[in-house]
């Protein structure tokens, strides 16, 4: 697999930023590597699109990993990982409810906190706290390079630090 994935180290977690098409494959790989405890799925509105953040822990050695993937507003579809970790079922429903993210393959994708009749996905940044649309909100441009693009090769004089992966903040 030609990986469209960027790996970095943030604090004590390995963070993978991955193309949505490769998200499911990466999750299957992590499941095979023994990451068995799903902590949460967080949905985020990035301003240019929606982001799914999956937090996992491996119980045997307490390694933590975070998987992120970004999808555009027009087609916010991500593969569901409910069959790998049943514990994310409600988190995926919550992300659908709050942000409008749709999880392909989810067994029961309906609203969880709000009522079924609602059309609002309130955590999107285009709405204010009360659920009113903000009049002057415009989506930002898709980032370039793309979020999962690996960082450019280090300059020759900084080559000594490149092995650490960088303490990004």
């Amino acid at each position: 697999m030609e990986a469209r994935v960027k790996q970095e180290r943030l604090f004590d977690e390995d963070v993978y930023t991955v193309h949505p098409d490769d998200y499911r494959a990466l999750c299957e790989r992590l499941k095979a590597e023994g990451y068995d405890f799903p902590r949460a799925i967080s949905g985020l509105d990035m301003g240019y699109g929606l982001r799914v953040t999956l937090h996992l822990t491996r119980m045997s050695d307490l390694a933590k990993v975070t998987v992120r993937t970004d999808v555009p507003y027009e087609n916010p579809v991500v593969a569901s990982v409910t069959d790998l970790w049943p514990g994310v079922e409600w988190y995926e429903r919550e992300a659908y409810d709050m942000l409008g993210l749709r999880f392909r393959g989810h067994p029961d994708l309906r609203r969880i906190l709000l009522e079924d009749e609602w059309e609002l996905h309130p955590l999107q940044k285009r709405y204010d706290t009360g659920g009113y649309p903000l009049p002057d909100w415009q989506p930002a441009a898709w980032p370039d390079p793309e979020p999962w693009a690996p960082p450019p090769p280090p300059e020759p004089e900084e080559a000594g630090e490149a092995g650490e992966g960088g303490e990004a903040s």
Binding site: L114, E115, L120, G130, G131, P133
Partner: peptide, 10 residues
Amino acid sequence: PGKDGRLPVL
């Protein structure tokens, strides 16, 4: 008004 959870028609 505006708080019914439905998107207003613009």
